[in-house]
Design a protein around this nucleic acid. Sequence first.
RNA 1: GGGCGCGUAGCUCAGCUGGUUAGAGCGUCGCAUUGACAUUGCGAAGGUCAGAGGUUCGAGUCCUCUCGCGCCCACCA
Length: 759
Amino acid sequence: MALIPEQLRAPYNPNATEDRIYKLWEESGFFSPDTRPPWADNPETNPNCGKTFSMVLPPPNVTGTLHMGHAIMLAVEDSLVRFERMRGKKTLWLPGTDHAAIATASKVEADIYKKEKKTRHDLGREEFLRRVNAFAAESHDIILNQLKKMGSSLDWSREAYTLDDARTLAVRTAFKRMYDAGLIYRGHRIVNWDPRMQTTVSDDEIEWREEQAPFYYLKYGPFTIGTARPETKFGDKYVVMHPDDERYKEYEDGQKIALEWINGPITATIVKDDSVDPAFGTGVMTITPWHDAVDFDIAERHHLDKEPIIDAHGKLLPIAGEFAGMHIKKARPQIIEKLKAKGLLARVDEHYTHRVAQNSRGGETIEPQIKLQWFVNVSAKFKLKNSKLNGIPSGSEITLKELMRAAVQGGQIEILPDHFAKTYFHWIDNLRDWCISRQIWFGHRIPVYYCARKNKEACERPLVSIEPVERCPACGEAVEQDPDTLDTWFSSGLWTFSTLGWPAAENDMADYHPTTVLETGYDILFFWVARMILMTGFLLEDIPFRTVYLHGLVRDKDGRKMSKSLGNIIDPLDMIKKYGADATRMSLLVGNAPGQDLKLSEDKIRGYKHFANKVWNVTRFLLQYADADTGASSGADEYALNAAEGLSAEEKEMLDELRAAASDITENISAYQLHLACEKIYHYVWHTFADKILEASKPVLNGTDIASRTRRAETLLAMWRTCLALLHPFMPFITEELWSLLPHKNKRALLMVSRWPVR
RNA sequence: GGGCGCGUAGCUCAGCUGGUUAGAGCGUCGCAUUGACAUUGCGAAGGUCAGAGGUUCGAGUCCUCUCGCGCCCACCA
């Protein structure tokens, strides 16, 4: 009788299967590299015995739920891990979540304001943090569920969080070591200030928006200057022009001139500087060093005075005279009126477009300000003691910038696709010191303490400490911790090794570091990838990973970014519910070339649900013939690739073709060409195995020659086991389920830890 | 302003180091099919690989230029 199990009689139902299979995997313990099947620990049965494969999960932000961008990451990473696990490597894929400091804080803050009309200051630091942590915990649980739904074979025993105790130790240790090496400093620098969130924002978190605004030409003594921001001009007392500008050759650098300005007569100083573009406007400008980065640089070069004009909330300071206390947005038209009345307004260009900086986490217009902040110095030399970096011997002195460049340039880290290396170098070349302090409450508090009394000279210095400090070691008085928190990327920059236990004595570093591959979206190459290279380079004098695999962004079928406002979001969970996780994964893998954006439509996902059904039905078909009469039910657990004896010429040819496909697929995955591998196995299963081989086998299977029937049925079953194995990294659920329904001679093992068909 | 990428069948895209009549999915059009297949099979139409030039025995693939898109970076006051 045919051996068709009951569940195979109905069409494949992913919903009824996937959670059960995931639980089976999880309980098996094989997600952890510490649990391995016997064959994998035996060098005779496993040529990869002793080799490891390690990868961290880019920790999703605890700001809500996962989207298709996460799904693509999970599909790629899980496929890689499952492949390597089946190849017998000791395989670690390490999960975790990211507290995402400003993103999470601003979301919670906005929610609270919406519901209760309260700000974080109304709640106070403690209560606010309680709320954020509660939200983060809730978000974490949702995310974990989603990760599991996708089939991610993550080692949950090693789960980490960027804000947990172990990672806090890593962060404080990293800060202290960098501080002691002179790579972290505190200073007054111009920073991107968000007046609404009351915090600095890093250069990388700025979004530029085109804006049309009037451009005013103002009379400034004998000059005419152009500005889009008259409200910042109260303190302008330097007038700058290019040294070679013939029009202004009568003026000399340092020359003083008296002139009438907005609130009365002032003395201005001429400054000659190369950075002025003679072709722009009148070729003359005044500078506002406190509120403009270019002006700040000019002021630094010429040692000029800097004065604040606008306060932290966007209101004018007393220097603005009668406008003091007004918000800049309200003051601007009134200032223009006054300039006009005084005859200082030469003309107005109404059609001027320029770019305005906005905080990408919240959308408020950035007001540059000079603030006392903490920075990582990317251009200061430090000495490598025990370098594992190619081409940079121990004892050499190097800057973080040079180190970041060298790690990739020397080929020690490979970036895929390789053209992103150029983008990376370009970014490094333009890199400025990294502002790491944030004036928000959620995050790693800066591990620096100040003596409250400063009784003695020794109390003057800030105290940087890995352990929390309560009393000043010099005078015994209470200390105050720096109120700021660290940029979220400071902690995620440590992720590849903080998750392995660094700097604790007991850790996994020896086994799994450097990690084999880092898989992530190209949009965070700078934010994250570069910073991991920086942190690892300094703290471990090593690379964090050997290969960087960058996937593209998921777009809708028209190529638009998926966003709430466009209403074109495809929710991974919805798709899993409708079509199954396997189909969802396949739709994200096929056509997904590294670094290339992927257009996704529901039709595509539906297409792979059809494929899953095909796979299901092939099994049902084969099991019809796997009956007691043919003896095929006793089929060995071995794959078909090595069998050859006693086969017909036709069967040998079938096997040759499968062998070729399997070896191609293996090569493709090894070269991170998952899109090719996926398409190949898809094509082989459907259009070669099902359409051609099974069709051609029907006469044999239904024929009268028992020996031929049996042999063919056994061959096909063995080939099918091979197919399921090859398909497993991409479609783990259905293949595992079908594997369990096939007849097995030996004790049934999970497909997840069965040997890969190609050695 | 600097950098990067893309332009291949109606649509979405593969095509690695140049090598036979350029591929897949979806869609379209025929025919078959109660079939292992709710979601099937067989077949067909459809491409001067953006355009021009060059290297080569040979170019979708390498080089140069042009056109059209997209993205990233940058301190246009």
